[in-house]
Amino acid sequence: MRKFINYALLLLLYSCTIPYDLETRYIVEAKLVDYNGNSLANEGFNLHVNAINSEIISRSVSDSNGIIRMIFPKPALQEFTFTLNKNATGNYYYKAISNIKTENFVNYKLVLNEIKLVKFNEIISLNIELNQVNQNKEVRKIEVIGDVYDEYESYNPIENAENSLDLQTYFTLLKNQNFTLKYSVFDYTTMLLEVNNVNLSIDEQPLTYVLNY
């Protein structure tokens, strides 16, 4: 039976788009909690590398304390992303941990920080539409102050993240809350940076906010 399982795994990984070192096994361990910090016991998850729609490289179920352990062949990459996704009967939204490096594994094991998850029916989307009304102004930063669910987290610091010009205009929020939209606009006429705060609320429906600047 063991030989059959290993042969099936070999066939699966042979067809994968990501190369693996089949002689080396990695272990990833993490504690899973809900948004209120309660342990998620007996919840099944699949593990993907680099994309949620990529092949499943491991499956596991959390124990009574919310601890989950996954064993899988070592990806033949220097840096990669783990995506934890629900199994066929699960109710929790995915979480991706990016910028993981091979040197983060100690004796082939990586213990992640506590992973906070939310259910599909607990979250709703916020979309920011940028509407430039003054050609001399530029939005520099957008953030949401409130109960925000981050689907993507970085295990290692991302270099020059503060200097990135990519604006986040899509957010996943917990339903039924008041929150603050904070954004900064640089005015090339006055050469000043304006910081603005807008108090908003969201309920059970997706929200689109038009940001005029």
Rank of each mutant, 00 (worst) to 15 (best):
K74Y: 05
E129H: 12
Y213L: 05
F80M: 04
I123L: 15
E153K: 03
V111E: 11
N65S: 07
F72T: 08
D21F: 07
L22K: 04
V148R: 07
L167N: 01
S58T: 14
F4V: 10
D34M: 03
S64F: 10
E23Y: 10
E55V: 14
T81L: 02
I158L: 15
V111G: 04
N134R: 09
Y155K: 08
N91D: 14
E153A: 02
E43S: 04
D34E: 05
V198Q: 06
Q78F: 07
S164D: 05
L32Y: 08
N196G: 01
A161L: 08
V210R: 14
T169W: 06
T89L: 05
N113E: 13
N160A: 12
K141Y: 04
L181C: 00
Y7Q: 12
S62A: 13
H48R: 13
N113V: 02
S154V: 02
I115F: 07
L193I: 03
Q132S: 09
L130C: 02
L174H: 15
I27V: 09
S98A: 06
I52C: 07
L211V: 09
G90C: 01
K182V: 05
E23A: 11
K116P: 00
T81K: 12
K175A: 12
Y149E: 02
Q132E: 11
L84G: 10
E55N: 13
L9I: 08
V210G: 03
I52R: 05
I56P: 11
L12C: 03
F72R: 06
N91T: 05
P75T: 00
N131D: 12
S39F: 13
Y188F: 15
Y209H: 13
E143W: 00
D150Q: 05
H48D: 11
G66Y: 09
N38L: 10
Y93F: 14
E29I: 05
Q132H: 07
L84Y: 11
A51L: 07
A161T: 03
I145M: 00
L32H: 05
R69T: 14
V28T: 12
P19S: 02
G37N: 03
